[in-house]
Design a protein around this nucleic acid. Sequence first.
DNA 1: CAAAAATTATGATATAAATCATATTTTTTC
DNA 2: GAAAAAATATGATTTATATCATAATTTTTG
Lengths: 232, 232
Amino acid sequence: MKKEMHPHNTCTLGMAVASCFEKLSDEEMRLLEENLVVVNYKKGEILCKQGTLASHIMYLCCGLVKIYMENDAGSLILKVLPAGNIIGLTALMDGANVFRYSAYAYQDCKVRLIDIRTFKHLIIKNSAFANEVINLLCENLIQTQIRFFAFTQKQSYGRLADTLICLACNIFKKDEFEFQLTRKELAELTGMTTESVIRLLSKFKNDGLIEMEGKILRIKNKEKLQQISDFG
Amino acid sequence: MKKEMHPHNTCTLGMAVASCFEKLSDEEMRLLEENLVVVNYKKGEILCKQGTLASHIMYLCCGLVKIYMENDAGSLILKVLPAGNIIGLTALMDGANVFRYSAYAYQDCKVRLIDIRTFKHLIIKNSAFANEVINLLCENLIQTQIRFFAFTQKQSYGRLADTLICLACNIFKKDEFEFQLTRKELAELTGMTTESVIRLLSKFKNDGLIEMEGKILRIKNKEKLQQISDFG
DNA sequence: CAAAAATTATGATATAAATCATATTTTTTC
DNA sequence: GAAAAAATATGATTTATATCATAATTTTTG
C-alpha cells in the first residue's frame, strides 16, 4: 500500500543531485567560479568535521562520500553521496553556520568549496536558484524522515536489505559493485553492531540473496531482498 | 562534550517558529491574505493526511498539533508543534506536492491554509522570504537528523527522558503541564510500545523524577532526567 | 616480507524491550 | 447513568539483538 503511493521512495538512502547551478546566469556562474576553490581529497580523508565553522558549501564533482554524525557513544551514517551532490546545505541557516555532521571520503574526491557568503548572495539575487535550494532541502528532509521512520519500523533484516538495495540502486547503480564499506560501516548505516551485520550478511548469502567475493558484492535476488526490506 | 558544543539542541523535539511572514511587504501580505482561508479544527481532527495532494501550506495560529508518519506496521510522531509553526513545507518541492506525513489536532486549532502557488510565488518574488523558508527547512532538517541520531544511540530510558524534557521546555514551556498525550502517543513519540512507556513512567515516578496526577504531569528533577537523557 | 593491526567470522551468553495475557481504571457513547 | 470502549497498569514469557570471547583472515606498516 505504502509502495503503491511512493514507489520511488522505497530506498531510504537517496540522493538529491544538485540541479541548482543550472539556474545561474553566465555572470553569476562567473561570480561563483571566482569564489570557489577546487580541492582534491584522498580516500580516507575528512572533508568536514561536525562542530567546525562552515565557511563553505561543498559540491562533490567526483568521488564518494559518507555523511555521518558521531559522539562518544557511536556514530550514524546519515547518507552516502555520489558525485553531483551538495554537502553542508544546513550551514546556510542564518546564525548557525556550523557543520552538523562530518563527511569522509570513501574514494578520492574532487570537491568545489563554494564560499558560503557567495552562495547566500546567489540565493538572494537569483530566485530560481533559491527555489532549487529549497527543492534540495525538501528532498533531503523527506529522505531523512522516511529513513528515520523506516528505522523505527523495521528490524535488522529489513534495514540491512533496504540498505543493500539502496547502495545498488542509488549509489553504485548496478547489482554488482565493489563494496567500499567495511562491515563496521554497514553497521553504522543500518544502526546495529558489526557482529550482527556479519551474521545477517552470512544469512543472506546462505539464502542465495547475495554473493560476496572479496570486495565484490553481487545482489542475486533483488525481489526477495525487497520483500525483506518491506516486511522485515 | 556534545552538550558543550550545542547546548541548545539537547532536546530533540524542537520547534522552528516561522518568522518568514515578517519579511513580506504590505502588498505581498495583502496578496497572501487574499489567497488563504482560515479554518478551525476541533481537537481530534486531521489537518492533513499523508499521501494526499497538498494544495496548501498550513500556518498554525493557535492550538497544538502532532506530525506523524504511518503505515500498516505502526506510526512515528515526527514532531509536536505549538502555535506559530508551518506545516507541510516539504510539499514545496517541485513536482511532488504531496503531504509526506499526517497532522492531527491535539487541541482545537486555528489554521491558515495558504494556497501553495501563492506561497511559491512569494518565494520567487521576495528573496528575504525565500531565505527565511530556507532557514526553516534547515532547522527542520537539523532537528530531524539530531532526533534520528538520538534514536539510534539512546535506549528507551534516555529517549523517554529526552521526550519529557522536550515537551516541558519546547512545547508547553513549563515544568508542570496538562498532558494531552496518551501513553500510546508517547510510545509513538519515543519509538517503543505502550506497555514499555507505562513501565518506564512508573519507574520515573517511583524514583521521584516526575509526578502524575490525572492528566497533570510535573517534572520534579530535571537535572536527573537530563542525565538519563544524555547517558541513557 | 614479517609483524602488527584491523577486519571478518562464529559461538555462548546476557539483556532490553516486545509480546501476550489479564485486570483495573477512566472515558466515551447511547 | 449504565454499557461499551479505550486507556492504564502489571506480570510472565519470548525474542531480537547486543555483548563478550576467541579465532581466522586480510590489510597495513615498518
